[in-house]
Amino acid sequence: MIVHEWASGDGDTEAEGRRFGAAWAPQLRAARDAYLDLFARSGVPEDVARSVARQSGAATLEHAPEVAAEFRGVAAGSGLAVADILLLTARTEILARMTPSMECSTIVHVPSSGDAPRTLQTWDWHETLSNETVVRRWRSASGTRVAAFCEFGQPAKIGVNDRGLGVHFNILHHRSDGSQPGVPVHVLSRMILDDAVSIDEAVSIARSVPLAASSVLTVVGRDGAAAIEVAPAGVAVLPVARGETFAHTNHFLDPALAAGEYSPYETTSIPRYDCLVDNADLAGIAASRERALAFGSVPGPGISVRPRADQPAHVRWETKLTVALDVADPSLEFAAAAPRDAASAPWRRFAAV
């Protein structure tokens, strides 16, 4: 996978979106076509996908107008329709209607010493999709500087801001998914990165918007962390205190939300979670690359997901990225590889400032 880099200037949000769209028009167009193909293979007709995207766009305009302005700019700059950008932004909400997807293992250690949390996440996604992605740097309307990893057409996913707050991101599946229109979960991540100073503020933002699909946003601050599990049915907060280590994969940990768990396919969420919990001491390793390599050296499959040749292309997943957050010196540190392969991949640092 190729991870491109992009830094926005100090223009207004729509103008910077236009500049981004013009620079990455081929990637945006390719992403639109690839996702339309995935939707069709997953049993989602294009008219249904576009209807969900329109609803997501309306919710974004109401609750995150600055992000909606960026979408207009990206569309204008790339020559695509705003509706196409919304298809990419709302891909989780669209897929939640028919075929849930599997992605990501996250672990966070909050040292008792007072040091900033140490984190690690894998991003697992479809083998055939998103083989060009981007880390972006921008300044929000409130003046916050942000760095985040995302697919083309998404406003944010995994990121960190210069106020000392970071977000890890794992997909979840709940029986309430698709039961109402709502703000895309990738827009929710952007809202938190743009505006939140504290974990409490991140929780307030998550509780303030309607959602159409489920995810867990593990929010990390300088003094602690919390997993915010979100679904159309509700929001649950799992705090992580000093001296604790917390892991999350792709099943709900809050008992009330877990009662509505929905997973119609064979998932590796439990084995990956067990791997993290059984090797929790590795999360305390201070250097992020060494932390990644340690998890990559765990015997067995661990958290490095490999594509299965016996599965159809639209349900064939692999680990595409290993990433850590530094909230003390706000940066993403990452390799475009699974932990098991990180030793042979460049380990890169991308700062918010």
Rank of each mutant, 00 (worst) to 15 (best):
V3L: 02
A22Y: 10
W24M: 08
L38K: 02
V48I: 14
A58H: 13
A59P: 06
H63D: 11
V67Q: 03
A76R: 10
L80G: 02
I94K: 07
S101W: 14
E103W: 15
H109N: 12
T122Y: 00
T128E: 15
E132A: 10
E132P: 08
T133I: 05
T133K: 02
V134P: 01
G143A: 03
A148D: 13
Q154N: 11
G159A: 13
D162A: 01
S179I: 06
S179M: 11
P181W: 08
I199G: 07
A227G: 13
V235Q: 11
V237R: 00
V237Q: 07
P239A: 05
V240A: 07
V240K: 04
A241D: 10
E244S: 00
F246S: 15
A247G: 06
H248R: 02
T249M: 01
L253T: 14
A258K: 07
V277R: 10
D281L: 10
R289Y: 06
V298K: 03
G300P: 03
I303D: 02
R308P: 04
R308C: 11
A309T: 11
D310E: 15
V315T: 13
A324S: 10
V327S: 00
L332C: 03
P339C: 06
A342S: 09
S344W: 14
R349N: 02
